[in-house]
Design a protein around this nucleic acid. Sequence first.
DNA 1: CTGGTCATGTGGTCACTACCAGTTAGATTA
DNA 2: TAATCTAACTGGTAGTGACCACATGACCAG
Lengths: 245, 245
Amino acid sequence: MSRIIDPYDVMPKYHQLAALLREKIDNGEWQPRSAIPSERQLESLYGISRTTIREAIDILVRQGYLYREHGRGTFVSPEKLQKAMLELTSFSEDLIRRGIRPGQIIRSLEWVVPNPKILQKLELPAGASVLRIERIRLGNDTPIGLQTSYLALREGQDITLEEMEANGSLYSILQEKLRIIPSEADETLEVTLATREEAFLLHIEEGAPLLLSERVLFAQDRRPVEFVKILYRGDRYRYTVRLTR
Amino acid sequence: MSRIIDPYDVMPKYHQLAALLREKIDNGEWQPRSAIPSERQLESLYGISRTTIREAIDILVRQGYLYREHGRGTFVSPEKLQKAMLELTSFSEDLIRRGIRPGQIIRSLEWVVPNPKILQKLELPAGASVLRIERIRLGNDTPIGLQTSYLALREGQDITLEEMEANGSLYSILQEKLRIIPSEADETLEVTLATREEAFLLHIEEGAPLLLSERVLFAQDRRPVEFVKILYRGDRYRYTVRLTR
DNA sequence: CTGGTCATGTGGTCACTACCAGTTAGATTA
DNA sequence: TAATCTAACTGGTAGTGACCACATGACCAG
């Protein structure tokens, strides 16, 4: 018995359908490399117009669950492609996805006037102050990264240490308290060597290789919200992306 | 004078329109953060249905050129967001985009039986042979990376040294000669230290930090085509991605 | 001046329809 | 038998028309 599309649901139909199809893929009802019903078949199966069907399939194609072949049909992707990893995720989500238990130690949380490079990345005028949060990130209780966030918040917006400690996830505070929805980010990765302090905090030798990630996070209206710098232990972290044409 | 949509063009209208709009953004006719004409206005401006208009805008939104705000309009993204970098690009394209002149030295090109890890990534049976291409990648004539590609080609498919040297781009040979269209890739990045041989080839010290990238490339039908391993000089290369929600 | 209402313009969702462009398999033809 | 044609599928592109959800500013009542 297959669930059905509810026209009175708050979620749009194409979204409901996409979820429904993804379920069939996830639970193995539709095997990798096999064809799913044609768009016209789905039309009558679910009583939904082809426009909507295609919209749902589009989503799953972009996420890597399905691929189309013109004239032949739409097929289920091999399993390993079914995880859309280029998606913008928070550090914790990222680790959980890999089966590692995330943790963190908040070293500081205060308003500061950062250096010009950071102001420029956040498109702020000289002398503007931002909220700086310094954290040590843990994976299964071992330090794996040093993270420093600089947040460009508006007048009246703030985040307290209590909130950070209670909630844990900066992204969910941004979304739920401040209504800032992360929607895009630019990230660069390079190699550096650990300074004495970094080495101490990460329990490694001074001069050990680190993976340095710098990310600028943009909100719905494409304004920069956060500049994050993360130093990962070179021996404990591997970065993964999915690229699409 | 604005160009117009040609219904007899081989390219679909939404593609033509997207190109046309992108041009207006690129040449500054439409300023960042300003609203572009509404979808209904574009409809009558270009004599195209709203369906098609939206399809064109969708493309530009995905590429980061535009963003929508429900109830308000569609706006031009700030300039720095206008380059979609999460896209799958070849090494050469990538460098050219940054204003660096690419070059390469082909060290070898031969059929080999690779190790099991690589066979597994390419979903090939034990003992299968693949085409291995070893190259030194140059940026402005300086070595910046060591690249080893393993290609899973079908019976009868081959690439010769002459073709590689004449054409330079592996991706364009794949596409034009073998009709293999790269459409997705999984990439991982991590840190390693240079071995003696790597150090020699890259003109650096043994033990210097390197950025190691491993990429599996998938074709239209989501079959793995290439496994590439690239070692970048840590001091000369920075990796960039654009993440989207 | 303040707060609510409402008209209007925006993007978001959806249905129905039509035709084009690849693919495939079976029927037809040489 | 082998090559070919053709019909019936597949997804791809495009138009039309309708209504919903959200944003905004003009207007009005308190």
